[in-house]
């Protein structure tokens, strides 16, 4: 389980917050917080059969519905990530594909985000999306894990 984000950049913290919530409830999961560093992501990809990524995705106002994305088969669009750096999750996946370093399964939970200002708190919409994720994840895990 990889939580990606920046804890002090508004909704970009959503991936980290989601990971912390899951880590508390599912201590058996192998959890790691990342900032999106491509080398760290590729290392994490290489060390597991099934990687689950929790990350914020840029969304329209009012959107509070988390997405479940097959990271190996569904491409992320350039505008779908919320990375503060040009080398984001999407690029790390494509680089992993080129280098043959992807896990067998890669599931992305995309949490809608709206405000990525430095120092900002998470928006109410993203907090609502996180609450929905906490309902969605146990059901998803029962079906897929």
């Amino acid at each position: 389980m990889l939580g990606i984000g920046q804890a002090m950049r508004g909704d970009d913290a959503a991936g980290i917050e989601a990971l912390r919530w899951l880590r508390d409830r599912y201590p058996e999961l192998d959890c790691e917080e990342l900032t999106g560093d491509p080398a760290a992501l590729l290392n994490a990809f290489a060390n597991a059969d099934h990687v689950v990524v929790l990350d914020c995705v840029a969304a329209k106002p009012g959107d509070t519905q988390p997405r479940v994305i097959d990271g190996l088969r569904q491409g992320l669009s350039a505008g779908q990530g919320a990375s503060t750096h040009a080398f984001s999750l999407r690029e790390a996946i494509e680089l992993g594909r080129a280098l043959g370093r992807l896990p067998e399964r890669l599931t992305i939970f995309g949490i809608p985000g709206h405000d990525f200002e430095l120092g900002a708190s998470m928006s109410t919409d993203t907090c609502a999306a996180l609450a929905r994720l906490t309902e969605l994840f146990p059901k998803w895990r029962q079906q897929h894990a």
Binding site: D37, F87, E91, L95
Partner: peptide, 25 residues
């Protein structure tokens, strides 16, 4: 245009960079 397309043709260069970065990390 980007590292992903470069990696397809220059895998060993990118692998070397990732290993070096890992040591810095």
């Amino acid at each position: 245009p980007d590292a992903m397309q470069m990696a397809a043709d220059h895998k060993s260069i990118v692998e070397k960079g990732l290993e070096l970065k890992k040591h810095g990390n």
